[in-house]
Design a protein around this nucleic acid. Structure first.
Length: 450
RNA sequence: GUGGCCGUAGCUCAGUAGGUUAGAGCGCCAGGUUGUGGCCCUGGAGGUCGCCGGUUCGAAACCGGUCGGUCACCCCA
């Protein structure tokens, strides 16, 4: 039996076979998220993958599916119950409390980027190891904060080219108004239990709000008449929800009230939202989150409101793919050093080192290939320039430098190599910035590169 | 945890009334004369046909099981 990766766990590769598993795209996306965090005043936090099981049992909720049947839990060698994090928020909150970050100027705005693990059956857009950008604000109950948190995600998406995504918004109330609403909902469905699907009969006891977004019972007549959470909010929740909507409008962020947005983690209060891209398949939420005003206190901290969301990196990448969009490519290799002869070959390594020290990326032959094979290899690497160095040139302190975009070749003194290449690069970039293509000299036939 | 579909080269896939050494395209490596990429041509490497068992004179193909992939339910990023 071959050793393979585990079910639902993917390798990110240096080849662009599947674009959502291409490492360049991951790097670009993470850069965008960190940049976005900076722009909005968020600081990165890195918390451990492993936490005490109790953190998630209390934080996420010990009746939720995530906790009851999806966690990677085990006891360590000291018989301590340990869990590999199924999401990032609980760990960030734990750290906020443990390090008393509430003593810093408030609010605390933080984010984490990293893997989370859930033991589920994989399907389109769902894995056992997935990655989240988890963005959190602790210490503000202002509806403007809700809007700002929604905005940072929408803003990132539009920078990536993901336009036309709409925010599905709902409010599920708070400990004051939700219990009443739950009872009203159960009163409404109780006479129809026989007509509801088996799943909904379970939901009736466990989480009646979930009946509202059942795919089986969706079209039954008594669904349309079911009481909606937003019609049963307490005064505080009502005005908060109105405030969130007002602020979203002022930011020109399109949203729609979607009373089916319920969320499966216990800590949510008031605002909940999801941003959905239906073509992703059954798992169409690109990111989602909400307010969790009781979570910090539940986990042993001072009463502190909070709000945040988790954005699935895989889902963002899949959405880009579905929309036919590409992240900007990594800069190409600046120079490949092709050598002929033993003396030249041993000179290549220090020469590459010199180029690299000036910030130019450089590669060289280490397989002892023929010049022709080296040229071919340089082409496949996407090198912009090939420095051709034979023993003759080396003796004269020169090299031939070939511009791979065309076919022009220049003699350049070795000591001027780095500045020469820099100059060529700068000139080419200036041309393309001016909107013109640098004319390639059609000396020996045109180029096929694009 | 439940169900549908699918497992042949690195990738995309041909190959079934069961019949010799299992194929193609792309990719990879090398060559197409003196030290030069892209196009083209030639050659090469690479597969226990997912695995185990069964039927058969004979299985990549048929049957059973198993593992893996995929999609959906549940739930979520």
């Amino acid at each position: 039996m071959a050793i393979t990766s585990l079910t639902g766990m993917k390798d990110v590769l240096p080849v662009n076979q599947e674009s959502w598993l291409f490492v360049d795209n991951w790097q670009r996306l993470e850069e965008s998220m960190r940049r976005q965090g900076r722009l909005y005043g968020f600081r990165e936090m890195r918390t451990p993958l492993l936490e005490m099981t109790e953190l998630f049992a209390r934080g996420v909720g010990d009746t939720t599916d995530v906790v009851t049947k999806e966690m990677y839990s085990f006891t360590d060698r000291g018989d301590r119950p340990i869990t590999v994090r199924p999401e990032l928020t609980a760990g960030l909150v734990r750290s906020f409390i443990e390090h008393k970050l509430y003593a810093l100027p408030q609010p605390t705005k933080v984010f984490g980027i990293g893997p989370a693990f859930r033991y589920e059956r994989p399907q389109a857009g769902r894995l056992r190891q997935h990655h989240q950008w988890s963005v959190e604000v602790f210490g503000s109950q202002d509806p403007a904060t809700d809007a700002e948190v929604i905005q940072i995600g929408i803003d990132l998406a539009s920078q990536l080219g993901l336009n036309g995504l709409t925010v599905h918004l709902n409010s599920i109330g708070c400990p004051v108004c939700r219990p009443d609403y739950r009872e009203k909902l159960k009163d409404h469905f109780r006479p129809h239990l026989g007509e509801l699907c088996p799943d909904c009969n379970e939901r009736f006891d466990k989480n009646p709000l979930r009946i509202l977004d059942c795919k089986v019972d969706r079209d039954k007549p008594f669904m349309a008449t079911a009481p909606k959470s937003i019609d049963h909010l307490c005064d505080e929740c009502r005005s908060h929800f109105d405030g969130v909507q007002r602020h979203l409008k002022s930011l020109d962020i399109p949203f729609e009230i979607d009373t089916g947005i319920v969320r499966g983690l216990d800590y949510y209060t008031k605002t909940v939202f999801e941003v959905i891209y239906p073509p992703l398949g059954a798992q169409s939420t690109v990111w989602g989150g909400g307010r969790y005003d009781g979570l910090v206190e539940t986990l042993g901290g001072p009463p502190t409101p909070g709000i945040g969301f988790g954005m699935g990196l895989e889902r963002v990448l899949l959405t880009l793919e579905k929309m036919g969009l590409a992240l900007p490519p990594q800069p190409p290799l600046d120079a490949f050093i092709a050598t002929i002869g033993d003396a030249a070959r041993s000179a290549a390594l220090p020469l590459a080192a010199r180029l690299r020290r000036t910030g130019l990326s450089a590669e060289l032959d280490v397989l002892g290939r023929s010049l022709k094979a080296q040229m071919k290899y340089a082409d496949r690497l996407g090198a912009r320039y090939v420095v051709i160095l034979g023993d003759d040139e080396l003796a004269r302190g020169e090299a031939q430098v070939k511009d791979m975009a065309g076919s022009a070749q220049h003699q350049v003194a070795l000591e001027n190599l780095a500045p020469w290449i820099e100059g060529q690069k700068a000139a080419a970039e200036a041309w393309s910035a001016a909107g013109d293509r640098p004319e390639t000299q059609p000396e020996n036939g045109g180029t096929h590169r694009g």
